[in-house]
Design a protein around this nucleic acid. Structure first.
Ligand SMILES: [Mn+2]
Ligand SMILES: [Mn+2]
Ligand SMILES: [Zn+2]
Ligand SMILES: [Zn+2]
Lengths: 139, 139
DNA sequence: AAAAACATGCAATTGAAGTGCATTATTCCA
DNA sequence: TGGAATAATGCACTTCAATTGCATGTTTTT
């Protein structure tokens, strides 16, 4: 059994052909991925299947969904934890206005934010928009 | 000329009947508003007109659009600056999982966040989800 | 008053997300 | 091993917010 298959199994995901391919695709790309990105790369497969694949991955803690404000959902591997099974830490996301890519800055934890009395924080979404390292080097 | 009319004119917005009503509605509500909220309150008017009204307000700096992750856009008055004409400061938004309302926390500036080398920040969206003050008081 | 500019109403389109259901593949177990 | 049970896939269809095209109505300008 391949390493990928065992990662999927560790997350209670049956390693079908498409799932293995989607997982490989997510690994290969270092940026967050849309359903359209997947569809473009998998002529052979059906949009709905890819959709349900990624949702299965999400439900089982293998990827997390990213809302970067562009209106389309993106997904990225919880790579640091793909093996361990721990849930991915909260981190910030960066969306580049130039190349339109969104990346996880997993090493940048979200600072503590004080709220007015009575407000209880359960979850935080922090997205920074600007120019990414690749694009700023080209200026 | 009413005070409202002069606020609209200060933002180069012609004070039509609907625009005045929409502006009043935004003032009355202390939370961010969706297009559906507007439509529900304005039986007499057309969705498209309300949409274009709010977009005009936004373009002219009278309201700002809020993406709280629910999938539907919300809008709130740049009230602090409605008179001054200054652009609204960056601030965080709070979305209550209980009452589903979203509020601007205009007094809570977004802390400085350090980025890896090469990344340039132009804009920040920070949304905190949890329980708002009204809902936490009811527990 | 006529022309130009702008606002409004209604119909239609777009695009992402999600669901229903039939078909195919895999697993489970007698 | 041979099904029955369970899960995955494919295709059609729906939903919903956002947005646009165009005709009509209104206001402003000259
Ligand atoms: Mn991430
Ligand atoms: Mn706000
Ligand atoms: Zn970039
Ligand atoms: Zn609440």
């Amino acid at each position: 059994m391949s390493e990928i298959e065992s990662v999927l199994k560790k997350h209670q995901i049956r390693p079908t052909a498409i799932r293995i391919l989607v997982y490989k695709f997510l690994r290969k790309r270092e940026v967050a991925v849309t359903l359209n990105d997947l569809e473009a790369d998998f002529d052979r497969s059906e949009r709905t299947t890819l959709y349900r694949t990624i949702k299965t991955f999400e439900k089982n803690g293998l990827v997390h969904q990213i809302d970067d404000g562009t209106g389309v959902s993106k997904y990225a591997l919880d790579d640091k934890v793909a093996e361990s099974g721990q849930p991915q830490d909260l981190h910030l996301h960066f969306h580049c206005d130039t190349c339109q890519e969104t990346v996880c800055l997993t090493d940048h934890k979200i600072p503590h934010i004080s709220l007015p009395p009575g407000f209880v924080s359960k979850d935080i979404n922090l997205v920074i928009k600007g120019i990414c390292d690749k694009c700023s080097n080209l200026e």
